[in-house]
Design a protein around this nucleic acid. Structure first.
Lengths: 213, 213
DNA sequence: GGCTCCTGTATTGGCGCCAATTTATGTGCC
DNA sequence: GGCACATAAATTGGCGCCAATACAGGAGCC
């Protein structure tokens, strides 16, 4: 069944899966995460569930109450805003690092994702929107030589559940974010570093709806 | 013996202790971390050791080889430099946030630690240097409203083992870092935001000896 | 009727055992 | 003497059991 040494890896992926489910709201804030339920739901062993929960606690997505269990952390808007601010800072710095490294082929690929995101804003699930958005930024950060910076950015992304903040996003704000993507591409092509840094900040810190990054 | 629900907390503190021991070089890079040895050394149970190791793997301080064991990660200078760069970015941003919030009492306390650090550069253990250094920055970041930013900065601090990089630091470079501390205080008093941001960058990215932050 | 206490049930959490596998040791052979 | 192979020891890693504790439901009491 479970081959030796693979439990670690399985727990890892389980944690990622649960992280996404929390982000998408399938596991609602305040909800109790009973170990037996999680075993059944994800087809995992008890130990894998425990390790995954432990990681999510470490990331601040899940709260642990001794002898009571685990529950999905309810999201303090202020804390979320702080995380978004950190993201904005790093995203601006990362943009500065890749502005001279993005070739035309990558920019074209980014444009495709920008189109996809814009289309999904109107008629598309949150998952589809998020996939396009994620891929856009993944492409953009791919040439960044500082892998730690990139890894940290994606880690921070996982700490801000889309479902929660996206709830506050009107279609208008999402459209604005969609247009940002095209503007980003334009500024990279123009090699306008200061303009890009400013836009990355705005893109991450859209007033009262800080999530679409 | 072990009271219920405390295992988690103990594993947490054990991870922190081991993290410091790795940072100080008491656990050398490449060294095998046998679970029985760790049990004996830290007076912990098997499970606590496992959880602690798991966390250190997650942080990138320890490498796990299936069915072989855990060993202290040997530190890629490039990766370290990347982490230091992230720290420099965030430290500059944090400085900008606290420059208007630091009162004279705190600045005086910082000055004490700056003196302590300078003294320990000449005759003092690495531990003493690091304690003064840490306290200086702790005081400086205390009024920062973005707690996530501060938490992340201290987390990043733990990922760069002082012993390893400090090895490259000549006394001259350490003294330069010590003077930086006084310069930081001066710039905060003068409310020179741009100068402070620049200095925080330099302070973190001292050429070829990027560790003293 | 409502409050309290008590019992039964569900859930978590730690501990120990044992299998799988790797490393070290010793023996025979070339 | 050195190499290959078999055997023994050591180590990790997963699984299951059971104690400790919290929660739910019901009975008894005021």
């Amino acid at each position: 069944m479970t081959r030796p040494g693979l439990g670690r890896e399985r727990a890892r992926t389980l944690a990622r899966t649960m992280e996404r489910d929390i982000g998408l709201g399938h596991l609602a804030p305040g909800e109790w995460l009973k170990q037996v339920d999680l075993e059944a739901r994800y087809g995992a062993t008890r130990m894998e569930v425990r390790q995954a929960l432990d990681r999510l606690v470490e990331k601040g997505l899940v709260k642990h109450l001794a002898r009571r269990g685990y529950r999905v952390e309810d999201f303090d808007p202020e804390r979320q805003a702080q995380i978004m601010e950190v993201r904005a800072i790093l995203e601006a710095a990362a943009a500065d690092q890749v502005i001279g490294l993005l070739d035309e082929a990558t920019l074209a690929a980014m444009e495709v994702q920008a189109e996809r995101f814009r289309a999904n804003v109107l008629d598309g699930t949150v998952e589809e929107q998020e996939e396009a958005n994620l891929e856009f930024h993944r492409l953009m950060l791919a040439p960044c030589p500082n892998r730690e910076l990139v890894a940290l950015l994606f880690d921070l992304r996982g700490r801000v559940p889309v479902a929660v903040t996206r709830r506050r996003n009107t279609v208008g704000l999402l459209q604005r974010a969609a247009e940002h993507h095209f503007e980003i591409i334009r500024l990279v092509r123009a090699r306008d570093a200061t303009g890009l840094a400013r836009l990355m900040r705005v893109h991450n810190l859209t007033p009262k709806a800080p999530d679409v990054g």
